[in-house]
Design a protein around this nucleic acid. Sequence first.
DNA 1: GCCATATAATACGATACCCGTACAATATGT
DNA 2: ACATATTGTACGGGTATCGTATTATATGGC
Lengths: 147, 147
Amino acid sequence: MAAAIGKSLRELAIQLSLLNHQIGARLELQDVDIDCLDLIDRLGPLSPSGLARQAGLHPATITGILDRLESGGWVVRERDQSDRRAVLVRAQRDRYPDLMRLYAGMNRSMNEIYAGYEESELEVIADFLQRTANAGRGATDALSDNR
Amino acid sequence: MAAAIGKSLRELAIQLSLLNHQIGARLELQDVDIDCLDLIDRLGPLSPSGLARQAGLHPATITGILDRLESGGWVVRERDQSDRRAVLVRAQRDRYPDLMRLYAGMNRSMNEIYAGYEESELEVIADFLQRTANAGRGATDALSDNR
DNA sequence: GCCATATAATACGATACCCGTACAATATGT
DNA sequence: ACATATTGTACGGGTATCGTATTATATGGC
């Protein structure tokens, strides 16, 4: 059973990655841009260097990514009040509908899937996904730390 | 609860994507290369054009990806017997240990997670993941079809 | 307060990637 | 048999990523 989950998980990973790619193409963004936008949205306003650490990318690469995201109106760069060298990147919520429209098909399918489960089962699933995401973060950090 | 799952799912997607990136970097491969290798392994020997369709990429892009995968010994290109224009790409299983070693950390964490669930719960989870992967494929296809 | 050092973000240039087009080889249909 | 379609790849252009250098600001020692 563990093997079946592993298999589905890998399959899920690649499918979500391909979906990400398609959505990125529609918005004239790279897939990594969408990833970064998600990180910015989730981890709140943060600095380019902080984002670089989270995404495991070179700071100079982040500059290019932010240029694209900013010129598309997805984020804004603000001066940090307390440290005038620093920049705070903030997601522009009013741009969200454009993203959600592209996720609409996926969301609809997911709602149908949710409908087929008991609340208690959904709880188990949510917990599992959270644990798995944390495991992914741990494994990623371990790889990037050990050089 | 559905919202919690959606949140965790997005988080999981990005974490797995970042893990993919780290692993790709260790193997001197692009992230998309790993995705393609996975597709080749899962969908069996298939043609470059078939792979291009599955991955939503331009055929010429696939050529470059296969060049990298082949020079690294991850896949081989074989002539198709029945159609001499065509090529069959086959994954090289003897290269798998090198991949698994990089996934070792993630696999260990996953095994710990599995251990915390009943068999019946794992069944629910496996089923959910499979459905979600299918939903992802459907949503991706819908986006790439509609232009 | 002053100066050396550290840190943040980005500009710039080199390398590599992705894709549109062209092309050679082979298959298919009339 | 010959026109057309299809497969895979070579080639060139535009662009992304990253290493390094640079500018601006912060921090710590004296």
